[in-house]
Design a binder for these strands. Sequence first.
RNA 1: GGCCCCGUCGUCUAGCCUGGUCUAGGACAUUUCCUUUUCAAGGAAGUAACACGAGUUCAAAUCUCGUCGGGGCUACCA
Length: 484
Amino acid sequence: MEKIVKNKKIRVRFAPSPTGFLHIGGARTALINYLFAKSMGGKLILRIEDTDRKRFIEGSTDDIVKNLKWLSINWEEGPNVGGNFGPYFQSERLSLYNKYAEKLVESGKAYYCFCSLARLDMLKKTQIAQGRGNSNYDGRCRYLTLEQVSELKKAGKKHIIRFKAPKTEKIKINDLLKGEIEFSNFLDDFVIIKSDGYPTYHLASVVDDHLMEISHVIRGEEWISSLPKHILLYKSFDWALPNFIHLPVILSPNGGKLSKRDGAVGIKDFQEKGYLPEALINFIAFLGWNPGGEKEIYSLDDLIKSFSLERVQKGGAIFNIQKLDYLNGFYIRQLPIEKLAELCLPYLKEGVDVKHLQKIVSVYQERLKKLSEIKEFAGFFFNDIEYDRGLLKWKDMSDKEIEQSLENSKKILEKIENNNWNKENLEDILMPEAEKGKDRGQLLWPLRTALTGQKASAGPFDVAAILGREKTLERIKKAIELLD
RNA sequence: GGCCCCGUCGUCUAGCCUGGUCUAGGACAUUUCCUUUUCAAGGAAGUAACACGAGUUCAAAUCUCGUCGGGGCUACCA
């Protein structure tokens, strides 16, 4: 009935469940799919696997869509863009899954099961008590006659549909990344349609991957163990197998599963903290993949150009935020000032003048690792500052010396007119004065701390220039008062 | 427990397929130095790895086996 089109077209999909927000692992799977599609002239399909109504989280589809876009991972078919193989939400394809499940029942490859959850639970407990490591359905409903089935149905008994799994079959499959994988063990009669009428992942993904003509299934390694189920399903429908690629998982710094405890894992969190999509993409791509050369800064386009599946790592990589921070700082330094200022704006109080911010940002560009840091770095430009008088002390200067130093700066600066108040001029005038002292810090440190209230900051000339004559002199005066 | 995947510096990795060019290369982190008013940025140098044990071979990070270690799955979740 279904047309089995076998073409050489590359079609891949990213198929997240809306049970949470887009996280690092998901973004990585999406990226690899995207890079593979783009580098091969194929298409990326986004499919939302919303078949678990219990774990469904409102808003997660939006989050996934929004953040993929933010990362510039674009799909050719799926939510927002449509396509010829829709709908792209599994909840809108229920009749399809039921049709195929029924087909399997008709051909004797699947069966109705009326067992209650309570019985199943009991079964599992006894099996485990008997010392079996895992439990299997005992097949009670497997040989129900047609009459028995229709009677139970008539009686209004809830049912599910189970797949009749062969008990002994050996299954071999060639994973394009891992190589040949052989599964030797018996299989359970796994569920394909749940009692709420929704399909399980196994049925839904196989049906969809087939109908959507997916050529390469690229997904996380956690799916390897259910591969035999999928293969059995393909076989019983008499469908051609797609290629499988199972990506290693991303590990947390302690080696386990990446979780919220490890800091930000949601892509949205990274965005809010001020990571740039370019940095995140570059970083995620290199988590388990490497082009082979010594160049490590790659734009999305660069990645597409040099991507190849063979170079994806087999082992799981640990997510180490330090390298991300480095990359992010690097990408921030590449940004034009206008752009940087625009990106920093949301982290500051409202009403910040853009031109003013551009000056500030140009001074802090090489210090920023995350955009959000602008708040701590540059807060003193906008707010009154408070600090301990001890901060003003350079090396072993006495209070008297600090005061003299500040008075000296003040005296000099007061002579500079407003229209000459710029960094170069300030530096030209103050520097010779600083050179007169034991070391430059004698003049420069008290000045800088008086202006910023910070132990570490941009240089005093930059700061004074941006602060303006009035505020600069005011802060010096305040510092002197603080010393009295 | 069972099934499956993986194993090169602290971390991401190059090299492994097609043994010799590997006294194992790069990056992040770390240390030191230079620059310097602080913090960055930049420059220079340093520390640091083939999990272990057998085997094959003239030769093994590279091939084979075993051990150990790590991870995943083991749901009417995906």
